[in-house]
Structure formats: C-alpha cells, structure tokens
C-alpha cells in the first residue's frame, strides 16, 4: 500500500524523537495528516503555531491535499544565515 512519507527537521524532529515517519493516507488534507502525526507523536502538538509545511518540496497550507506517494515536510521556523 502506498504511504505518505513525513520528514521532520530541527526542533520538530527533536520533539517527535524521529526524523521520518510513514502514514497510510490518501486524499487527506494537511490538517488531517497533522492530526495523525500528533496522535503518534503528541509532543509535537504545542509546536503547531510555529510550524510550516511542505508537500513535495513546496510550501503548503493546512487545507491542501496530501496523496499516497507524497512527501510531506514538517518545518520549524527557518534559521539559516
């Protein structure tokens, strides 16, 4: 079965205790995927307001759709430079 791959970075990876997770999901919104993610990694919940997300390498908002085979990234506030 095709999975959605979730990559976590920086502080979000720390809070979840993992850098990568997989979920069986297809045709769900990013917000719905977030609910699945926080069910598995509750420590992520308080970070929600600080996070951005990407679907397949491009910034995406909560109502956007995630399909099987997509790569979703959980992005804490960027701090390059």
């Amino acid at each position: 079965m095709e999975q959605v791959k979730v990559l976590l970075f920086g502080a979000a990876a720390d809070q979840a205790g993992t850098r990568e997770a997989e979920f069986t999901a297809n045709g769900v919104t990013l917000d719905e995927l977030w609910s699945m993610l926080t069910l598995k990694y509750p420590a992520l919940s308080p970070m929600r307001g600080t996070l951005a997300f990407a679907i397949n390498g491009e910034y995406a908002k909560g109502e956007e759709m995630v399909n099987a085979g997509d790569e979703v990234a959980v992005l804490p506030p960027v701090s390059g430079g």
Binding site: A11, D14, A54, P76, V78, S79, G81
Partner: peptide
Amino acid sequence: IVPIWKREIWSDGYVWVGSQVG
C-alpha cells in the same frame, strides 16, 4: 524562505535557534 536550521551547541547542551527547543 530557505529551509535551513541552525542549533547552537553550548558547553551544557544545544538550542535550536528560532524554536528555543533543545
């Protein structure tokens, strides 16, 4: 906009800059 993150490594631990998690 560039997804790059830095953490400060202190003598007593680390902190993710911008998230204050560490």
